[in-house]
Amino acid sequence: MKGKKVSLQKKWFTLLPVLLAILMTGCDKMAVLDPVGPAGESQKNLILYAVIFMLGIIVVVFTIFAIVVFKYRANNPNRKPEDYRPDHHGNVKLEVVWFVIPVLIVTALSIPTVTTLYDLEKPPESSQEKEPLVVYATAADWKWIFTYPEQDIETVNYLHIPTDRAIEFRLSSADSMASFWVPQLGGQKYNMAGMENTLYLQADEEGVFKGRNANFTGEGFTGQTFNVTAQSEDEFDDWAASVSEEAPELTQDKYDEILAPGLLDETMSFSSTHLEWVDHGSNEGRDYSVERHGDKYDEGLHLENKPGWAPDEIQQ
């Protein structure tokens, strides 16, 4: 009876790495492991590098565990008297070994971590010959506002970027702390009111990618998403020109209306930017939204789920 349980237990634990292996074969489809730009690529490589070490550790621990639990169970019929040493209490050599090995692993993991960290602070090397395109990404409850100072245009809840050129995102928030994240382009960074974070991302492939706020910001958080369209430089220029010509100008009244807490039904485009009167990333702009809309959080949105609204589905 008891013996059966032991083998069951062993099987269950050896099953885990197998399960892991099966699930890992689906890696290519997972957003983080399917990057389309250099930032995401370097992070993917770092992740897979770490996974190799981690799988190694898991295999070692699970194997030793399975062997000792199986072999030294009290009711093992094949027990020999020398299999029980109740006063066995230490072995300096062994303890040094399993102190040194983790030290080596941590060292091996630290080096690429640090180099990647420094690399991510700069525009990617592959597009060094071009100046990065500056885009202000401002979070507001619960939408995204993208400002292109060079093109003098602004979009809400959608983003167009040229491929093969670094984008310098200047991140800030009009109110609560959000996190700008496009998994297939690369890792996230926080948007905070009153300060500015810089994040360099780049797309090497054309396509539409999901982006979202990853940091909880309250009732409309789930819906605080946007699509990123990566297109060739020419197509991007055409798009920017058409927005500049066709879209209405952004007035301060209209902008204040957009900032009010709530979800928008549609995306928007404007042929001028809000930077003319406020930069939420500066100390002066930190309380711009709260001063205007601080009283609107009393009433909840009573947000219900709507079919087809879930954030993992791209709406074209």
Binding site: G40, Q43, G186, G187, Q188, K189, A214
Partner: peptide, 8 residues
């Protein structure tokens, strides 16, 4: 550097 992708 990898945490930027796991975070949140």
């Amino acid at each position: 550097a990898a945490d930027y992708q796991y975070h949140n």
